[in-house]
Design a protein around this nucleic acid. Structure first.
Length: 190
DNA sequence: TGTCCGATTGGT
DNA sequence: CCAATCGGACAG
């Protein structure tokens, strides 16, 4: 059913590719992961854990991989990340978009949009659609009701990568090609 | 397409 | 103080 703990081990950029096509499940709602971004620890100016910042917010990233890092964005939205990398290295992967697979009626109620693509094509949108909040901070993603299920991994030629979104004041890090998405998938953000 | 604003948290 | 891993509304 859910992935094993080992699924989350290994380099963060490799886990990014492994997450594409996997299913993120919360309760009765779920979707295939179609877009992610890596935020890699102390050396990444765009990461909340840049320079080794260790606060109540970033604490979970210092723990073992496979847990949820949820934070509040601009005061009103939630963003969901998967903690990655070795324990002690504060790394995480932001899930930016999903393709709904289950509970789409629930998502429509929560989101109230005309176009179903607007349900989960952004990091704050997908949290609202799946009911993910700050209360899920630190949760273990190998256990129901909140977990990741392995799926069909896309072929490498069906995966695209490029610079991350919304971080234009991060110096060199701005151009790192650490955003990954499934080519031509209609649920990818932007 | 562009711009503006909400309303919270952490860092300087 | 102010920028931030964003989304929605509305002008044009």
């Amino acid at each position: 059913m859910a992935v094993d703990k080992d699924f989350f081990r290994g380099p963060t950029l490799e886990l990014c590719r492994r997450l594409l096509g996997a299913e993120l499940v919360h309760g009765e709602t779920a979707g295939l992961i179609v877009e992610v971004e890596a935020y890699i620890g102390p050396g990444d100016r765009a990461a909340h854990s840049y320079g080794g910042r260790r606060t109540r917010r970033t604490e979970v990233m210092f723990g073992p991989p496979g847990h949820a890092y949820v934070y509040i964005s601009h005061g009103i939205h939630y963003c969901f990340n998967v903690v990655s990398g070795e324990e002690g290295n504060p790394e995480a992967i932001l899930v930016r978009a999903l393709q709904p697979t289950r509970g789409i009626e629930i998502m429509r109620k929560r989101r109230r949009r005309r176009d179903d693509r607007e349900l989960t094509n952004g990091p704050g949108k997908l949290c609202q659609a799946l009911g993910i909040t700050i209360a899920h901070y630190g949760w273990d993603l190998t256990q129901p009701p909140f977990f990741i299920r392995p799926g069909r991994r896309p072929r490498d030629e069906d995966i695209a990568c490029g610079p991350r979104i919304g971080i234009d004041s991060a110096g060199e890090a701005r151009d790192y090609p650490w955003r990954f998405w499934i080519k031509d998938n209609p649920y990818v953000s932007r």
